[in-house]
Design a binder for these strands. Structure first.
Lengths: 214, 214
DNA sequence: TGACAAGCTACATATTTATGTAGGTGCCGC
DNA sequence: GCGGCACCTACATAAATATGTAGCTTGTCA
């Protein structure tokens, strides 16, 4: 089993040093890179042999850790980014995950658990501190709360709705569906009734919110 | 520190028994309830002193574990539901979390890790098997894929866009913003240019897809 | 100070839309 | 076979929208 190569991106010297020491001492680990800023990491990490995992602080000088994730992933697609932060608020968690982080640990994580997390992420997992995991679950739940309940729209109405969402007019949509503009108007009425709206754009908005369209 | 009371809902006798034995033997744990179906759990769990944590199988006879979560949470709001399943597919994970599960473990979880997970969930965490955690992160990311990149929309344009998404007409929106319909028309043009669209509903659709609206 | 951007107002017109009314065809279950 | 539904056609009209043109205020920034 090859060793896990970890890059540390952290501006506080003592934190960075003790992390590096911990990882170097860990069995099966190496810590070939440690940087004090995202800019430095992007400039200096060897393109031919980058790290497997990056342990990234959020509060970095210059570019924030979150902003840097996307750049890091762009340059090193294989790299697994794990956030290591003192902050566990929804906003930061959200941003970090969307930017491409696949793990999020708080700085209170005990050393043994940190090494375990690094193993976990390099094995395809997504280590999170318990509090963070709970926030992720809660945020997750917020996204599609009721699921798309019975939409009662007929297939034809659904097709029309999709075309509207793609920016079609009655005329172009009618051509697309092979029906007349009048008929499109007719279907629109039924859609409006069912969605309880009174205009095309309101119907589109509602369709998106109900999960009928994406 | 009071003990953690765990309810097991699992139809396979041997699995259920060995889980119960494991938990009873764990320090700080009790296992006052074990049921073979969701229906039984809903009927028989003491309303006056329910468990703290429920360990729920998905593939139950009768009502599935997922369907039961919402009922369980409705009746016992304090109860923390943890799924314990052989399946870790996106669909089930998604359903379970949305239904109210706050943990998701695979049946391959080693006994020690299982007890640790139960402690974690009762302390406000959300234990997940590594594979599951990774799926959750990936699913999470799908929801707001690129984050709302530089939308270049001015605050006024943004306000207008929000009103459109709420079903407003030019006229009602202009009243809402305290500007004239003409001005609304003017702003619409700029919005259309920036979003590269040519109609109100197309703009709304694009705004939703870009994450500008919700 | 002068260019520039954001924001606003105004007028005009061709298109698109919302909505009313009135009716026709084909499939399904009772 | 009859009622109901999905689906379609058609005509009509008031309202809303898309887009062109033209010009005015601010505040910022070089």
């Amino acid at each position: 089993m090859p060793e896990i190569r970890v890059a540390i991106i952290e501006d506080q010297n003592d934190t960075r040093d003790s992390l590096a020491a911990l990882i170097q001492a860990g069995e099966g680990f190496a810590c070939p890179y440690h940087f004090t800023s995202m800019e430095e990491a992007l400039k200096r990490m060897g393109g031919d042999h980058p790290a497997d995992v990056a342990l990234v602080d959020i509060g970095l000088p210059g570019m924030s850790g979150i902003a840097g994730i996307s750049l890091l992933k762009e340059r090193f697609p294989q790299l697994q980014v794990v956030i290591l932060s003192v902050y566990g608020d929804d906003e930061r968690i959200f941003q970090a995950i969307c930017a491409g982080a696949c793990g999020y640990l708080l700085k209170t994580t005990p050393p043994a658990r940190l090494l375990e997390s690094l193993r976990e992420v390099s094995a395809g997992g997504s280590p999170m501190s318990p509090e963070v995991a709970r926030r992720v679950i809660e945020l997750f739940r917020q996204f599609r709360p009721p699921a798309q309940h019975a939409c009662n729209l007929t297939p034809q109405e659904m097709r029309l709705l999709k075309l509207l969402g793609a920016g079609h007019h009655y005329k172009t949509a009618s051509a697309e569906l092979g029906i007349s503009v009048h008929t499109v108007g007719f279907h629109m009425r039924r859609i409006y009734e069912k969605l309880q709206v009174h205009s095309k754009s309101e119907a589109v908005a509602k369709a998106f919110r109900e999960g009928l369209l994406r």
